[in-house]
Design a protein around this nucleic acid. Structure first.
Lengths: 215, 215
DNA sequence: TTGAAATTCAAACGCTCGTTTGAAGCGAAA
DNA sequence: TTTCGCTTCAAACGAGCGTTTGAATTTCAA
């Protein structure tokens, strides 16, 4: 076996641990955010040793960076919402599609939903790792929101107005995803099943489209 | 001097320390949230001993509870936005007034603004203290938002719809207040002076009132 | 089978956190 | 002046955090 093969085999075992750690870290960071997610809990869920994080990723931040890379890759895959797909829809349908996609974590606990939750955390407790990560490429949720919003705004809208409207739209689903657990408690007591999600999409789409005066 | 007088004098000195701690805690919790705000920083700013927090308030949570009580009192004072005042305005003006009031922290660093910032933190990192505190009386920002929203919604709107719309409105200003510092950085680079605040109020009021289709 | 490299492991380190401790300081009554 | 309760203080405690350490184990080419 060549040295290359040895490296490959060695890295196969390495990859197992790395993958388990990234997976566990994704769920832990989705639940508790970067600061609140502890290395001990991650390694416990990954059934790995604490030191493995530092051995394989150089530290907690290195592991987080890998999670963000995986998240970016998942978002870039056309499995997720596609800019071209949005453009093919009418502005109204694009808006509905956007809201529905980013509210999905309310009822699904899949991988993409966890990534969205991490983004929701970052929208509130930005970590240095994340800030550096997105420094020169705004996260997709903002790029998509801008795309949706631009089709409604007049051509001569100022950059500031576009930014206001884009942020306004982008943070609407993030709020519900982020605060889902709190909204499930009194005094709100909102439980999100598929049907409640549809009603939420309807309500938000209606409000965003036509505003309060249009209901 | 009677025992009562002695107690009064003793409590005067006590009140000095307590007031300094509550004031310092308000600013620290406004800056860093409950979890992120350390007792050491609070006592340092209050020029008090660390142990004073436990002596006077029984612990960090007791001090926080006092801050929340002070915040509630400040909000209940008619210095702040008054439900009756809102009702006296047209629905549109009430909406503008609401947004303007809750976006004020962007340009002012006064006491009420700090309380609003604490609420913004809680909307994202709910502490047990806060949850217990508001358990049976929703914070005013939500009660006011419901009041504003109800005047637009049809009488037969479901409770869930009202809640959706209320949350939708309430979190709009909270987002900008909470993320002000992040929005000041690239890639957004939004600086909020008085004029930018007015433009933001205009934009949000327009979007909330007429939606994207109305711009 | 052997030896060296890669990986895992339990334990400990250094740090910050909220809290506790017991002595010292203080003001007012006796 | 002495005494007593209230308040302050420096120091330490215990728990949790990310990280480091050095030995044990595993892996696999030779």
């Amino acid at each position: 076996m060549s040295n290359l093969d040895q490296a490959r085999v060695a890295s196969r075992s390495t990859e197992t641990t790395r993958a388990a750690l990234i997976k566990a870290a994704t769920s832990v960071f989705a639940e508790y955010g970067y600061d609140g997610g502890s290395v001990r809990l991650i390694t416990q869920r990954a059934m790995a040793n604490q030191a493995a994080v530092n051995y394989h990723f150089g530290g907690k931040d290195g592991l987080y960076r890998e999670v963000l890379i995986a998240a970016t890759r998942a978002f870039e895959e056309n499995a997720f919402l596609d800019p071209e797909e949005l453009d093919a829809l009418s502005p109204e349908d694009a808006l509905r599609r956007y809201l529905h996609q980013f509210l999905l974590p309310l009822v699904k606990r899949d991988r993409v939903s966890r990534f969205l939750r991490i983004f929701a955390w970052e929208s509130v407790q930005p970590s240095e790792v994340f800030s550096a990560f997105i420094a020169h490429s705004p996260p997709r949720i903002f790029r998509l929101a801008e795309r949706v919003v631009r089709r409604f705004l007049p051509q001569d809208a100022s950059a500031e107005t576009v930014t206001f409207a884009m942020l306004w739209l982008a943070q609407q689903p993030m709020f519900f995803v982020r605060d889902a657990e709190r909204l499930a408690q009194p005094p709100f007591s909102l439980k999100f099943d598929e049907e409640a999600l549809e009603r939420l999409v309807d309500t938000l789409a209606g409000l965003s489209l036509r505003g309060l005066a249009g209901v």
